[in-house]
Amino acid sequence: MKNEPKGPRPRKAFSPGRIMLYSILVVAAIYYALPLYIMIVTSLKGMPEIRMGNIFAPPVEVTFAPWVKAWDSACTGLYCEGLKVGFWNSVKITVPSVIVSIAVASVNGYALVNWKFKGSEFFFAVLIFGSFIPYQVMLYPLVIITRELGIFGSLWAVIFVHTIFGMPLLTLIFRNYFAALPEELFKAARVDGAGFWGIYWKVLVPMATPIFVVAVILQVTGIWNDFLFGIVFAGQPNFPMTVQLNNIVNTTQGIKEYNVNMAATMLTAMVPLVIYFVSGRFFVRGIAAGAVKG
């Protein structure tokens, strides 16, 4: 009876299967992390070191000069003012776009769930379907519309376009969120005499903080990362950071300064990456929320 099995099954600390599992995951993680690593190390090297060494080598002499140059004096064609211009343009585009698009979409979702009217579901279906239409199809008509509105080539045009193209996904996640709230809540508020806006501000908005956070994260990363709408609608003085980054990196004049390019890339990626690393759970939730269509 001494060697009778008793208690938990004895296990080797690492079975061959587990070792395989972790090895695959670690290799995959290295592969996915590598570009970020290369971005960082390249941006911290001097040009001579880049030419002499290899891209995987960590910097021998760490220098922040490329970062300073990327921010302050890197050239995009004729102008040599660095990325700071683009950064502030992106801020000026992102902040109002995020606010306006979320305000509009949350009201949409609210109206769709609690104030259904004839055809509301149809408009919603078109909206969802529309999110799959390639932007190129609607690009030129939108140029005409913004030109007629007198806002083409300004920040307003970009905000306008971001509000439109952010609407399907945002409306969807707000609609799903509001639909999951107990209907009695809405009914009780109506019995208490609250109207459309009263219920929205006093009942729904306070309860919807998590989904507002998700929406803000989705929109800030999405709009910050946009290139197409920025280049088409913003006009030269308002180009966002992504457009400027592309111009700095792919400018044909002068010698290529890879360290400055990578510093500029890091600077451009910084805002969405920080948001992502800080708010990972909400970011993931945003993705999942957007994938449940209908």
């Binding site: 009778e4 099995p5 008793k6 208690g7 938990p8 099954r9």
Partner: peptide, 10 residues
Amino acid sequence: AGLLEVSEGQ
């Protein structure tokens, strides 16, 4: 059923 591993006992 053996779907959970016991901590002690038989």
